[in-house]
């Protein structure tokens, strides 16, 4: 696709001489799309999500993108900004602009539906494949499980539990790009929290599901996931824990 440049109306009718503008390359189309260039007014404290929203509201209403909370809680606005996956709502333009330019693309390693929107189904399907669902054995009449906050198991789960499923780690993972079957950092991190959940009863199945060539043993410890996780979780540490748990389970029926 040839690059097109779209300029805001205010620029064509004559804007103040001092007004700065940002040159924004935005991915348009599906997998076989290309970058389209927009000129967006550069504002103070502007986030990348503000830029995308400005484009859709003022320059091209057909631009597709996702967001919901705008405050780093929902994880739906993750995109590649200058080649790195980030939450666009929590990324100030000042942090990422190169000169007066920025490039915005959909997350990597996921099918592109349109423009900046990716299909997250493969990502969450892998959570299910990694047995990311809690399975307890207690009944309503049973006593509450007592989990001490300072127990080693609970502390390991705590370190990984805040994941909101934004897909930044998955998009940043080299191994996913090389092996599309690889479960990826988020699904393995989820499995690790459940392995450390004293109430869960399906760890034997779970360890089998997360082991092997498409599971934790495929991780190369590049740590891109840990470096880019906006919640500062270290899936790499969880994956290392899963490797240890799997090795220990080898003596059993794994």
């Amino acid at each position: 696709m040839a690059e097109q440049v779209t300029v805001p109306a205010s620029h064509t009718t004559g804007s103040p001489a001092k007004a700065r503008s940002l040159n924004v390359r935005v991915w348009r189309g599906g997998e076989a799309g290309g970058f389209h260039v927009f000129e967006v007014p550069r504002l103070e404290s502007q986030t990348v999500l503000d830029v995308v929203t400005y484009i859709q509201r003022n320059l091209d209403p057909t631009l597709a993108y996702r967001y919901a909370c705008r405050v780093g809680m929902c994880g739906s606005c993750a995109m590649n900004v200058n080649g790195k996956a980030r939450w666009t709502c929590r990324t100030h333009v000042a942090e990422v602009e190169r000169g007066d330019a920025v490039e915005i693309a959909p997350l990597s390693n996921l099918p592109v539906i349109k423009d900046l929107v990716t299909d997250m189904a493969p990502f969450f399907d892998k959570w299910a494949r990694a047995k990311g669902q809690f399975k307890g054995a207690s009944q309503r009449s049973d006593e509450f499980a007592r989990v001490m906050p300072d127990s080693p198991q609970r502390m390991r789960a705590d370190a990984a539990i805040e994941c909101i499923g934004c897909g930044v780690c998955y998009s940043s993972c080299d191994v996913v790009s090389w092996n599309p079957d690889y479960l990826g950092p988020a699904a393995l991190n989820r499995a690790w929290t459940l392995v450390n959940d004293a109430r869960d009863v399906s760890n034997s199945e779970r360890l089998k599901a997360v082991a092997g060539d498409a599971g934790c043993h495929a991780c190369h410890t590049h740590t891109s996931c840990s470096e880019r996780c906006p919640k500062h979780i270290s899936p790499t540490a969880g994956i290392a824990g899963l490797k240890r748990a799997v090795a220990a389970a080898l003596k059993g029926d794994l």
């Binding site: 082991a211 060539d213 090795a247 080898l250 794994l254």
Partner: peptide, 12 residues
């Protein structure tokens, strides 16, 4: 190759 074999290769 079965999962157990893959794990053993990794350990090896």
């Amino acid at each position: 190759m079965k999962t157990r074999g893959q794990i053993l290769l990794w350990l090896a």
